[in-house]
């Protein structure tokens, strides 16, 4: 009781700074208005009312770094990928630009709808799979490692062209079975700690778990620059880390399981803005 009263007083005192924070809005470079909080998509409405970007859960300092591209350490990788975009590689003598021209024209809106169905290959494709398909089959070049720095940078370059646009992945039609599989995985407990994604990111977002402020585990900001490891991180690398932290045998990045999980987790963020490269701790 005593403690509660003290906490309440502290909360009131702090409210000017703390609450101002939670209601902070993300505008990048003073011009790109990001939706970091919105009504949950219909398929999620029995579980959540609102969906929130991970940006909302980060400290003032970390939030600020994402508000200006000059302060965002992830932008260095984007610049490097812009060079890779124009670089001829592989047996066919082509670059990305040979087929797609200016990235700022051809890649607008792409990130927002991935993972998506590929008719010709009859498979659900992540952006990473599509990038590697182009490299292998159109350029005759080596595939990037699924969670490599080159891959993360190329994903970031493509994502930047969609910044501020709402994530809008399809969940029905030919992708439905994959989406269902991803949903199963999201709610399946793993490891000796016996926790699912939902245990932390649906039931406990907003709570502290030791020093970490649990977010909803959304991927609208991926790839993210993490201050902790000082590089861009892909969604599958993050999934692997979270599964490992349940003291489980993880799945492999690029596996059927993580492709399905990516589609499902992306769909939980339908309506949030594409933010990548975002900044997290």
């Amino acid at each position: 009781m005593k403690i509660k009263a003290v906490t309440a007083i502290a909360a009131v005192l702090l409210s000017t700074s703390v609450f101002a924070d939670e209601d902070a809005e993300l505008v990048v470079n003073g011009e790109i208005e990001m939706v970091t909080k919105t009504a949950a998509p219909a398929h999620l409405s029995d579980a959540l009312d609102e969906v929130l970007s991970g940006w909302r859960f980060r400290s003032d300092e970390t939030q600020l770094m994402q508000m200006d591209d000059f302060d965002n350490p992830g932008m260095v990788a984007v610049d490097a990928a812009a060079e890779a975009w124009d670089a001829v590689e592989g047996s066919e003598g082509k670059s990305c630009a040979s087929c797609h021209g200016d990235v700022a024209d051809s890649m607008v809106g792409v990130r927002a709808v991935y993972p998506k169905w590929n008719d010709a290959a009859e498979e659900v494709r992540t952006l990473a799979m599509q990038i590697n398909d182009c490299r292998e089959n159109k350029m005759g070049a080596e595939k990037y490692g699924y969670t490599s720095g080159d891959m993360a940078a190329m994903e970031a370059l493509i994502s930047v062209q969609s910044r501020g646009m709402p994530v809008n992945v399809a969940i029905d039609g030919p992708v439905q079975a994959t989406w269902e599989a991803g949903k199963d995985l999201y709610y399946t407990r793993t490891g000796q700690l016996d926790l699912s994604c939902a245990s932390c990111h649906e039931q406990n977002y907003g709570n502290m778990i030791r020093a970490d402020h649990l977010s909803q585990g959304q991927i609208n900001g991926f790839p993210v620059y993490r201050l902790k490891n000082a590089k861009l991180n892909t969604a599958h690398a993050r999934f692997k880390g979270c599964v490992r932290d349940t003291r489980a045998e993880t799945f492999k990045p690029g596996s059927a399981e993580f492709i399905a999980l990516e589609l499902y987790v992306a769909s939980r963020g339908n309506g949030l803005s594409v933010e990548a490269p975002s900044v997290r701790n």
């Binding site: 399946t188 407990r189 490891g191 000796q192 926790l195 039931q203 490992r244 003291r247 045998e249 993880t250």
Partner: peptide, 27 residues
């Protein structure tokens, strides 16, 4: 509950070898 069981060694899904991400040999 989300609270882990601290004295239990079976019945887990994909148990790992501590925090290595590899399969557990013996829990």
């Amino acid at each position: 509950t989300v609270m882990p069981a601290y004295y239990k060694v079976d019945g887990f899904n994909r148990p790992g070898d501590a925090y290595t991400g590899k399969a557990a040999k013996e829990l």
